[in-house]
Design a protein around this nucleic acid. Structure first.
Lengths: 156, 156
DNA sequence: ACGAACCATGAAATGTCCTTGCGAAGTGTG
DNA sequence: CACACTTCGCAAGGACATTTCATGGTTCGT
């Protein structure tokens, strides 16, 4: 993808807000004909600027009301240690986010659980079983203040 | 929404993976006629189980390659203190996630930046300006190991 | 300046899709 | 059994997506 012009950004911004808008409505919003809009969208998808479309589900409706932030330290920073840990953590379905970090802890995880009892199970079955871990620190989210899927494209 | 049956879960799982699939293809995948599928989808959307559809953009393509995790402590836990802080943090477009937490820090933020210089600007213009803050701790993500939009619906 | 190559566009056409109405089949209850 | 209730599939009409094609604008090199 060479570069994004004003219309591309408008398309991205619109699809960020409503990923299921029809091509016809999208075209009208960004001031293009349907055909031109369809072609540009095709390019944006194929070039990788748009990585996919996803339904955002209500965790509440799915009974996942609890979010835990878990800080983890490993016994070393060797590449083998890291990759073994990462392979294991990827297998846990309750881990939604995992970053290798600079700073005090090596990894930060966001874990979804149904309730405290469910988290206890996850901690026992998954987190405790992760290799090379020397320290785990769990904290629980009391309230979700912000949860944006992406940064607003306007601000790029 | 009363409860989700097997077909509902199949619909949700499919839309989580491909939020822009046509109703006809979706119907075929879950083993329903297009009309029945369209009606069920309508119910799932209106009842709030599906909170929206969003295009997932390439942060790389948008030049947002840097992720910072910011821990923040406030001077108190009074409701007024919290709500003033939250109102302010919501205005910063670079803050993608913000949780009120139990534990050592009061809030955890995920912040998107273009590079270290951009983060310095965000820190100066936004984070330092947040009210009631007594401690800020920034750590940077070296690698994104996992980034799932939702928990896999199968595992509920 | 001129023409060729290139690119993005809008209009039109065609095939597909979405939604609504309708009747039928299944389920639970009095 | 009879009734209410729900969900289904089918069909039809209108909306939509995508391809084709001709046009206008821009960028080159001569």
């Amino acid at each position: 993808m060479d570069k994004l012009d004003t219309i591309d950004v408008a398309i991205l911004r619109t699809l960020q807000e409503d990923g299921r808008i029809s091509n016809a409505n999208l075209a009208e919003k960004v001031g293009l004909s349907a055909s031109a809009c369809s072609r540009r969208l095709d390019i944006l998808e194929k070039s990788g600027v748009i990585r996919g479309y996803h339904a955002r589900l209500s965790n509440k409706a799915l009974d996942y009301t609890m979010t835990a932030i878990v800080h983890i330290s490993l016994s070393g920073q060797f590449e083998k240690t890291l990759s073994e840990f990462e392979a294991a953590v990827k297998r846990c379905p309750n881990v939604l986010v995992c970053y290798l970090m600079s700073g005090e802890y090596d990894y930060i995880l966001r874990v979804a659980a149904k309730d405290l009892q469910d988290y206890e199970r996850i901690h026992k079955e998954w987190l405790s079983a992760l290799p090379h871990v020397v320290r785990i620190n769990s904290a629980f989210a009391l309230r979700e203040v912000i949860d944006r899927p992406n940064i607003d494209v306007d601000k790029r």
